[in-house]
Amino acid sequence: MDGKRGEAMSKYVLKLYVTGHTSASVRAAANLRRICEEELGGQYELFIIDILERPQLAQDEKILATPMLIKELPLPLRRVIGDLSNKEQVLLGLDYYPAV
């Protein structure tokens, strides 16, 4: 079941939508970076998008709440809302199942 680990792992493309530099935004970004480094190593690209600076992107992606993480690749597209402090929930949202 664990075909997403090691060298054959697909690179993850992640977009984290935040609203300004609030404590929730900073916490979500830090939590996500920690989880990605621990579980994905260098196999990810992370884009942090402030919807106050890029409102059109938020509208295009239909962002209704922040912080919101969107996993664009590998497919299927997934969304996770919140401060991303629950590692298991984030990994589930990424469709990533670490070896047990």
Rank of each mutant, 00 (worst) to 15 (best):
E45F: 05
P67G: 14
P55A: 01
H21C: 05
R34G: 03
Y96C: 15
I63Q: 12
E38V: 11
H21Q: 14
E88Q: 10
L40D: 08
N86S: 08
D95G: 15
D95T: 14
G82Y: 09
L91K: 14
L16A: 04
V80Y: 02
A28N: 02
S23I: 06
K71H: 11
Y96L: 15
V13T: 05
A8L: 05
G41E: 00
L73P: 06
D50E: 04
K62A: 13
R33D: 06
R5P: 09
A8T: 06
R34W: 11
E7V: 11
T22W: 02
A29P: 01
E45P: 00
C36W: 07
L92W: 07
P55I: 11
P98D: 10
P98I: 05
P67Q: 13
T19Y: 04
R5M: 08
I70L: 06
K71G: 12
S25V: 03
G42T: 13
L92T: 15
L75C: 09
E38N: 12
A58R: 02
A24N: 11
V18I: 13
P76A: 14
A99T: 14
Y12F: 15
P55V: 07
A65C: 05
E39R: 07
R78T: 15
P76H: 08
Q56Y: 04
Q43L: 05
D50A: 01
D83Y: 11
E37A: 13
N31R: 05
F47D: 01
R5I: 07
R33W: 05
G41A: 02
S10F: 09
Q59F: 12
A29W: 00
P76Y: 14
E37R: 12
M68Q: 14
T66W: 06
I81E: 09
L73I: 09
P74H: 10
Y17K: 03
S85W: 08
G41L: 00
Y12L: 09
G82L: 07
K4V: 12
S85P: 09
I51C: 00
R78C: 04
L46E: 01
G93Q: 14
E7R: 02
G6Q: 09
D60S: 15
E37Y: 03
Q56T: 11
I51W: 04
Q43V: 03
A99K: 15
T22A: 06
L16Q: 10
S23W: 05
I49L: 01
K87N: 12
C36A: 06
M9T: 06
E38D: 07
G6I: 10
R54W: 12
A24C: 02
P74Q: 00
Q89Y: 10
E39F: 07
R79V: 13
Y96R: 09
Y44L: 06
Y17P: 08
I48K: 07
N86I: 13
I51Q: 00
K15Q: 07
S25C: 02
M68E: 13
T22Q: 08
C36S: 05
K62E: 12
E7M: 14
G41T: 10
V80D: 08
L57F: 02
E38A: 09
